[in-house]
Design a protein around this nucleic acid. Structure first.
Length: 796
RNA sequence: GGGCCCGUGGUCUAGUGGUAUGACGAUGCCCUUACAAGGCAUAGGCCGCCGGUUCGAUUCCGGCCGGGCCCACCA
């Protein structure tokens, strides 16, 4: 039978949406289970990592729904901030600086609306149990309002300050960025040995990868125990091309005497160490780079150039003047902006910060109260918090994003906050409600936008309608689950915890699950530059959504998984198997008055399969409760295929084919019972396939409109019977031996056996197993003998 | 450099203090009244390496090697 799995899947997706199967009913009396879903950046494409993570999250959502919870499973789009703006700039080939603020925002909103449609379709195509009526966007009014309210509240708590400070700056995006937005990149560069002269004519060499920062040099550092440089300490050194400016030589224990020449020149600001040294030494700041990345007049001969050009130029000039004594190639790591990969510079500018370094210990202690799945992921957060060096810079010099609810008084410079009631505000359009303390009514609106994470860190508050619906918020906050990737533990998880603690004095959720990464088939990270990206839509197209979901259910939560197309094959085979086995069960049970499973008349194979089924239900439920869904999928799959389809179905065929067989009604009942429970346990993984079978073949079993509204099965402990399973194993072992012999004799498996000689270890038990074996393998007569191990001889 | 994770037949994986689960692939047989986009069967692994604990380790401990991720970083 040719099955069009795509048609089946589309049919049920439309049905679910039409019948609002995944609707969250806030009036329900069931306990709520809420999920703080990760809002993907609107880019128009769903990548494999999305498909993987959302599917894993969906397993949990579907399980919880069946387990009796009213599941709150929303979806969010992150269309706020820098990532979104950069995506649009790239797509359109534009830069924000060439547009007015208004125009630029308009373009971004239009583009993201289009991209969002494509993305939603992609996410729908993998069969997620999302209630789309709960959709939120990180730039929509409620999100803006909450983000601004968060700002006001933090201000009142004394957690916000504004400061002119050295800040990591992206010259390409022309904005300050946060520590968490840094990435490293290894770069080939040259290590320049530059010879300086002291005022009394002695020579000292330093080595640097940033010769272009020389005009900003404010000191030279040497290690206090470095004998070579002892005599230089305290002396003045002449800076080339600087009209005779000199800097002092300092002792500094941070210097590594082994590296370079053992002498370091100190610039404002080459790297984070320079910043620390500036703070320690009270040296002057010479800022030579403008916000747009060009060098200013303080850079002298480098004025107007950008970093790369300036480097070339200064090397050239130093060569000419004889200051450059050596140049060697070096590989070193530079900090780049993760969004645009431009090496960062450190500049001073006025920025808003959230003061939180003082609370590091509290954050670590509180985060320990969360349930982390897997547990070890918490260490990553601890590492991050322990390594924090900066308060959280939340200012971004961008047009697009949530504005600061802040004005500055034109007359006295006082910071004036928006009134809670007027949120969300745009300080460039709106005005404060009151006049300034100084009496002035003239204000300048803050032009910067809030860091994207300032808003994203409020997704629990957004989901729970913090400001819009107090009763709802009280009922819903904190949420139950935050599922997310390990790459953004330091960003999203951390900042969300921070906000929860600041605003509600509570952790924002009870549990955090961390999903792994999707890697390419060789175990490498998928990336556009490596050209190894596999798109989920291609796989859905080639196989089907349930096959993709099958793959997502294989690894343990938190583990990275290489994308293996063979698992799609395996998934599709499994789906076909389910559909075929279900067809069989329907055919042979149709019109049969089902027997009662608790009654007498259960054959050994019935008892064995029912015992195994109930044990499986128990194990599968426990696995799900521990978020070990891969165990659930694996064990149900193996049971369904290797026990139920391979053995049980074969063992009862003669019973169900023969209308007069007295075991027929029982076998029919057991077939349905086992299949139905397997379908229920597989429905979180294969929602389309199981719905198809339930709706087309087992309508009568369905209590509601969908298998996804059914109750998760309960194990009947009384049915678990080790002795029955033991006997079942004997039956299966003998059948397996007979299959081998038939295969070896090149006979079909239904070939009639006139006589079989079977050696078994326990003759008494075998007596009980014999009838099942005879009918399953078409054996007319069996002679049983006692022996050390099971063996079989067949006569045809 | 620091932290975390991983290393099981050709490939990917389950698992456990008593030599091992399944898949994909390979090979052979079989049109068997669910299924040939199938069924059944077969081959294939000193469970990364070296030590230690133990009667016994793939499983526990230590070290090493290899891979991955995060963080820091030499100017």
């Amino acid at each position: 039978m040719a099955l069009d799995l795509h048609k089946i899947e589309e049919k049920w997706q439309a049905y679910w949406e039409k019948n609002r199967i995944y609707k969250f009913d806030r009036k329900s009396k069931k306990p709520v289970y809420s999920i703080d879903t990760p809002p993907p950046t609107v880019s128009g494409t769903m990548h494999m990592g999305h498909a993987f993570a959302f599917t894993q999250q969906d397993f949990i959502a579907r399980y919880k729904k069946m387990a009796g919870f009213e599941v709150f499973h929303p979806f969010g789009f992150d269309n706020n901030g820098l990532a979104t703006a950069l995506m649009v700039e790239k797509k359109r080939g534009i830069k924000q600086k060439n547009f007015s603020r208004k125009e630029f925002i308009k373009i971004v909103l239009k583009e993201t609306a289009e991209e969002e449609k494509k993305m939603r379709k992609a996410f729908e195509s993998i069969g997620l149990s999302i209630d789309w009526s709960l959709l939120y966007r990180t730039i929509d009014r409620p999100a803006r309002r909450i983000a601004q309210y968060s700002f006001l509240e933090l201000f009142k708590q004394g957690r916000l300050y504004q400061r002119e400070a050295p800040t990591m700056w992206c010259p390409s995006c022309a904005t300050a960025i946060a520590q968490a937005e840094l990435h490293d990149r290894e770069e080939e560069s040259s290590f320049c040995y530059i010879e300086f002269e002291t005022t009394d004519g002695e020579k000292i060499s330093i080595a640097t990868t940033r010769p272009e920062l020389m005009p900003a040099c404010v000191a030279i550092h040497v290690h206090p125990e470095d004998k070579r440089y002892k005599k230089f300490v305290g002396k003045e050194v002449k800076i080339p091309f600087s009209n005779g400016r000199t800097v002092k030589v300092f002792e500094n224990r941070d210097v590594d005497p082994e590296f370079g020449t053992g002498a370091v020149y100190h610039c404002t600001f080459g790297d984070l160490d320079d910043v620390a040294w500036i703070l320690e030494t009270n040296l002057p700041v010479i800022e030579i780079i403008n916000k747009d990345g060009t060098f200013n007049e303080k850079a002298g001969i480098l004025k107007g150039l950008r970093t790369e050009e300036a480097r070339k130029k200064i090397i050239e000039e130093l060569k000419k003047s004889g200051h450059l004594v050596k140049e060697e190639p070096i590989k070193h790591v530079v900090n780049v902006h993760e969004r645009c990969k431009t090496p960062i510079e450190i500049l001073t500018s006025k920025q808003w910060f959230v003061r939180y370094l003082d609370l590091r210990d509290e954050f670590i202690a509180k985060a320990a109260e969360l349930e982390w799945v897997p547990k070890y992921m918490k260490k990553r957060l601890d590492n991050w918090i322990n390594g924090l060096k900066w308060d959280w810079n939340i200012s971004r010099q961008r047009y697009y994003g949530v504005p600061f609810p802040v004005w500055y008084c034109r007359k006295c410079g006082e910071v004036v906050l928006a009134d809670e009631k007027q949120l969300p505000v745009d300080p460039l359009k709106d005005k404060p409600k009151k006049k300034c303390k100084c009496g002035s009514r003239e204000f300048i609106g803050e032009k910067d936008a809030l860091d994207t994470w300032f808003t994203s860190s409020l997704t629990p508050q957004i989901n729970c309608k913090w400001l819009e619906d107090k009763a709802f918020f009280k009922k819903m906050f904190p949420m139950d689950l935050r599922p997310q990737g390990h790459d953004i533990i330091a960003l999203w998880a951390f900042n969300t915890i921070v906000k929860g603690l600041f605003h509600q004095r509570k952790l924002p959720w009870k549990t955090i699950t961390i999903n792994g990464w999707t890697l390419d088939p060789k175990g490498k990270k998928m990336s556009k530059s490596l050209g190894n990206v596999i798109r989920p839509e291609e796989m859905v197209e080639k196989y089907c959504a349930d096959a993709l979901r099958y793959w997502a259910g294989l690894p343990v939560l938190g583990e990275d998984i290489p994308f293996m197309e063979k698992e799609m094959v395996a998934g599709k085979k499994f789906i076909t198997k389910i559909l075929n086995a279900s067809r069989f069960v329907e055919i042979v049970t149709k019109g049969v008055k089902l027997g009662k499973i608790n009654s007498k008349g259960l054959e050994p194979e019935d008892r064995a399969i029912l015992s195994k089924l109930n044990r499986l239900i128990k194990e599968s439920t426990e696995a799900f409760d521990r978020y070990e869904f891969s165990k659930g999928l694996n064990s149900v799959r193996n049971f369904f295929w290797l026990e139920f389809a391979d053995f049980y179905i074969e063992e009862v065929k003669t019973r169900v084919y023969n209308k007069k067989d007295k075991g027929r009604k029982i076998a029919a009942a057991v077939l349905q019972e086992v299949l139905w429970n397997c379908l229920l346990m597989l429905s979180p993984f294969l929602p389309h396939t199981t719905e198809e079978v339930a709706q087309t073949r087992f309508r009568k079993r369905l209590k509601g409109k969908s298998i996804h509204l059914e109750q998760w099965p309960m194990a009947d402990e009384k049915m678990i019977d080790e002795k029955a399973e033991e006997l079942g194993e004997i039956i299966n072992a003998v059948i397996a031996e007979m299959r081998k012999k038939k295969t070896a004799a090149k006979k079909p498996l239904n070939a009639v056996v006139k006589r079989a000689v079977v050696t078994v270890t326990d003759l008494q038990k075998f007596k009980l197993a014999e009838p099942t074996i005879k009918r399953t393998m078409a054996v007319q007569a069996i002679e049983a003998r006692k022996g050390e191990e099971v063996s079989v001889k067949l006569e045809f």
